[in-house]
């Protein structure tokens, strides 16, 4: 069923210097995307802020200091103090560690699970694919926040449990993406050629399909991390957050919710803006990577 394909479709670009390396080209494209580079800068700033910051800016985040609660920003406490007297700037670093770690781990976990599931479904095809994708449809039909709320009402997980739960509610979207990619790749001519000469399925998947999905997977991971960090912010609001005195940005934000009505703006704006900035940054990076690699991903 070949269609008659002929030369001379491309507009004349006589003597185009060929690109030497796809990766180098992608890097150049990414670096030209100002929003993406800004996003990269923001992420790097927050990583330094949360992980190196506490080494420079020492604060006590374990003991309450009831004689200095809800202080407004001053020279001693740049961002004021919270309802139990913790220094807010120090707490922002301290909570950011948890938010970033959980978000990163959950995002990666979701992508790994989604990739394996989607690649298996797409490559197998037929009824296996149909069943696997109906399961994904069912998962997508249940809003993640509903599951998190139920879980939070019944149990209090630790950090690893939290990562696991968040990963397990967010692998569905990447699995659909990777399935679509696998469907395309398994019918590429080089895969057909390999199968025609007797190459194994394992070889087709490991040597061709997965390596060619790498860009898609990287882009999906970036977006997944953004979503996971956002989801972490909801977790405390739903009552599933980490236990005090440990905290995360979402915990700080929901703790400050009532305080906001009393005019203690410094308790909600810093964590709120930190969440927005970091999630925005990962989205911008994902957007830039997607354009740079020229792969599909969410609009």
């Amino acid at each position: 069923m070949s269609t008659v394909i002929q030369p001379a479709k491309t507009p004349g670009t006589a003597g185009t210097p060929r690109e030497t390396s796809g990766t180098r080209l992608a890097v150049r494209r990414f670096l030209r995307n100002r929003l993406a580079v800004a996003g990269l800068g923001v992420v790097m700033f927050f990583v330094l802020f949360c992980f190196v910051g506490p080494l420079v800016y020492h604060t006590d985040q374990t003991h309450t200091a009831l004689q200095q609660v809800n202080l407004s920003p001053s020279g001693a406490h740049w961002l004021g103090t919270d309802a139990v007297g913790h220094d807010e700037l120090g707490r922002l670093m301290y909570g950011g560690k948890v938010s970033l770690t959980v978000g990163l781990a959950a995002g990666v976990l979701a992508t790994v699970v989604g990739t394996l599931w989607g690649a298996a479904a797409g490559y197998a095809g037929g009824w296996i694919d149909a069943v696997m994708m109906r399961i994904v449809d069912a998962g997508i039909a249940i809003p993640a926040l509903f599951i998190l709320l139920v879980v939070s009402a019944i149990t209090t997980p630790g950090l690893p449990g939290l990562i696991l739960i968040l990963g397990l509610v967010s692998w569905l979207v990447p699995s659909r993406l990777i399935r679509a990619e696998t469907l395309t790749l398994k019918n590429r001519d080089y895969v057909l050629t390999l199968r025609a000469i007797g190459g194994t399925h394992a070889r087709a998947i490991l040597r061709h399909i997965l390596p060619n999905s790498v860009s898609t997977i990287i882009v999906a991971t970036t977006f997944q991390i953004a979503d996971a960090i956002l989801l972490v912010a909801y977790v405390s609001y739903l009552g599933l957050g980490v236990q005090p005195p440990t905290t995360d940005w979402g915990g700080m934000l929901s703790a400050g919710l009532t305080a906001a009505y009393s005019g203690y703006w410094w308790l909600i704006l810093p964590p709120g803006l930190a969440i927005i900035l970091v999630v925005w940054a990962f989205n911008a990076i994902g957007d830039g990577l997607r354009d740079a690699f020229d792969v599909r991903g969410r609009g």
Binding site: L35, A226, I268, G272, I276, V278, N283, A284
Partner: peptide, 24 residues
């Protein structure tokens, strides 16, 4: 660029934080 940036910000804001800001 402006709309893209605003879109990303809207997407990145937890609904409860956005609601709180709207109320305030």
């Amino acid at each position: 660029y402006v709309i893209t940036t605003l879109s990303f910000i809207a997407y990145s804001t937890p609904v409860y934080f956005l609601g709180l800001i709207l109320i305030l």
